Simulated scan of single mutants.
Amino acid sequence: MLFAFLCTDKPGHLNVRMDTRPAHLEHLNKLNADGTLTMAGPFLDDEGKPNGSLVIVEAEDMAAARALAEADPYYQAGLFETVEVKPYNWVFNKPEA
C-alpha cells in the first residue's frame, strides 16, 4: 500500500534542512534501491526555498509507514513541525509496473 508523508518544516530551520540534506538523500537513495520509495521532493515557499517535503512510499501498513517517516534524518534532526502520514491511492499518470 502507498503512503504519503506530508512534512512541514519548522520556521527558521532551513539551516537544519541544508545541514542534514546529505544524510536525508542517502536515506532516500536506500529506500529507492530497496523498491520502497515511489517519489519524493520538497515543497517550496514563494521565494523557491524548501519549506517541507512530500515523500510517497510503499509500506505494509500504517505502523510500517510511520516507522519509515521517523527513520528519515530530517525527522530525527527535528526539522519538521508536522508530519502527516496518509494512505495514498495513485490514480492518474501512474507509471506501468
Rank of each mutant, 00 (worst) to 15 (best):
K86C: 01
F80N: 03
V57A: 03
D45N: 08
M62K: 15
V85C: 12
V57S: 09
P87S: 07
I56A: 11
D46T: 01
L79N: 08
Q76S: 03
A67N: 12
A71N: 15
N51R: 05
A63G: 09
D72R: 13
P42H: 09
V83N: 12
Y74L: 11
G41E: 13
P42Y: 08
R66G: 11
L44G: 01
P73N: 12
E58Y: 06
K86Q: 02
E81G: 07
V55N: 01
A67E: 15
A65C: 11
G41P: 08
S53W: 00
D46S: 05
E84D: 15
M62H: 15
T82G: 00
Y75C: 14
T82V: 08
P50K: 08
A59P: 10
Y75I: 10
A64D: 14
D61K: 12
G48F: 03
A59M: 06
A69S: 12
G52S: 05
P50W: 04
R66F: 07
G52M: 05
G41V: 12
F43W: 12
V85K: 09
P87W: 10
L79Y: 11
A40P: 06
Q76V: 03
E81S: 05
M62V: 04
D72Y: 07
L54D: 04
V55C: 02
Y74N: 11
M62C: 11
L44T: 04
R66K: 15
D61G: 08
A63N: 14
L54W: 04
F43I: 15
E60Y: 05
Q76C: 02
T38P: 01
K49S: 05
D46E: 07
A64G: 06
E81R: 14
G48V: 04
D61Y: 07
S53L: 03
P73R: 11
A59D: 05
V85D: 09
A71R: 15
A69L: 13
L37E: 00
P42C: 11
V83L: 10
V85H: 10
S53I: 05
A59F: 06
V55G: 10
E70Q: 15
P73W: 11
K49A: 10
L54Q: 08
G48H: 02
E58H: 09
A65P: 12
V85Y: 10
Y75G: 10
R66C: 11
A59W: 07
D72F: 06
E81M: 06
A69P: 14
D46H: 00
Q76T: 02
V83Q: 09
E81Q: 15
L37Q: 00
Q76A: 07
E60F: 00
F43Q: 06
D61I: 10
L79V: 12
G52T: 00
Y74F: 10
A67Q: 14
